[in-house]
């Protein structure tokens, strides 16, 4: 009987497991394997390259630029969108007038595809007739070439990303706020604690697990979401907005060097696995107040 149960369990797992292995675990390993070869050119089959792809990566200025862009992109978008998300959640969770409409307004960007959003924002950023420059002109400032100026292009992308993501993170904070114990707040009211004090000493610490969860997801998103680049900048001008995953795409499907793309993928995978470890250690250890 016990044998039979084991068999049943494996049979139930089998379909999911096969697909998981085929599209996540095995490709992660073959990425490593393929990164050790040169691409096949013409009739010449692909040759073993050893670590050559990684060596050229170290010398590849574009890789480094995409890498640092991605770090800046994460630093520029994650804390701001999380801060806004928390503020939104607090507002929507309070007795503010019209909070259902407000919640809808905050959340709607999340429901729209990044491509659609980028199409709309592309027009805001357009130099001659774009809305942002019209606004600047109307207060007497000269316009900015938002997406064409290497100094402004990445911040412009960040701005749109913050707008797109904040409402999504708000949901997690809102869920956490609604599950908080009301007694503590009653006790704080009895003690006549000021709202700021309550927020700093009660709400914020109790939200810590959520903050960490959102943080990890936000950083993950900063590395895996590049849809808007296809519409807004294509990584330009002069790679000023190139991000790692977009550079992987370019190498694999525009430059047809899937082996170098594999080496790049491995770097990205390593980054994400490190992130997973950090999350695991932190969440397990420190942040539980329950």
């Amino acid at each position: 009987m016990n044998r039979l149960n084991q068999l049943y369990a494996w049979l139930m797992l089998l379909p999911a497991l096969v697909l998981l292995l085929a599209f996540t675990h095995i490709p992660a390993l073959t990425t490593l394997w393929h990164s050790l070869f040169f691409p096949a050119r013409g009739r010449r089959p692909s040759e073993f390259a050893g670590l050559e792809n990684y060596r050229s990566m170290l010398d590849d200025a574009v890789f480094w630029q995409a890498f640092y862009n991605n770090l800046w992109y994460a630093i520029g978008t994650v804390p701001t969108s999380m801060g806004l998300a928390l503020a939104m959640a607090l507002w929507v969770n309070s007795k503010i007038s019209g909070r259902a409409a407000l919640r809808l307004a905050y959340f709607t960007p999340t429901m729209l595809p990044m491509i659609a959003v980028a199409n709309i924002w592309l027009f805001f950023y357009t130099p001659e007739i774009g809305l942002f420059n019209k606004l600047l002109n109307s207060v007497g400032l000269s316009g900015i070439n938002w997406l064409g100026d290497p100094n402004w292009a990445l911040p412009s992308l960040m701005l749109m990303t913050i707008w797109k993501e904040a409402g999504f993170f708000m949901i997690f904070y809102l869920a956490a706020l609604q599950s908080l114990n009301k007694d503590i707040y009653a006790a704080a009211a009895v003690e006549n604690a000021s709202p700021l004090y309550v927020f700093r000493r009660i709400t914020l610490p109790l939200l810590m697990p959520t903050t960490l969860f959102v943080l990890v997801n936000a950083v993950l998103n900063a590395f895996k979401l590049v849809d808007h680049l296809f519409i807004l900048t294509k990584g330009g001008p002069n790679n000023a907005t190139n991000l790692l995953l977009y550079y992987i795409y370019e190498n694999a499907f525009s430059f047809f060097d899937s082996n170098y793309a594999a080496a790049l993928t491995l770097v990205l995978l390593t980054l994400l696995i490190l992130l997973a470890l950090v999350q695991f250690l932190l969440i397990e250890r420190r942040v539980h107040y329950r």
Binding site: K224, I273, L275
Partner: peptide, 16 residues
């Protein structure tokens, strides 16, 4: 193994 996929999302493995 299942949880690992929460981190290594299929989006990243487009090449393979």
């Amino acid at each position: 193994l299942v949880l690992l996929q929460l981190m290594i999302v299929p989006e990243i493995l487009i090449v393979e």
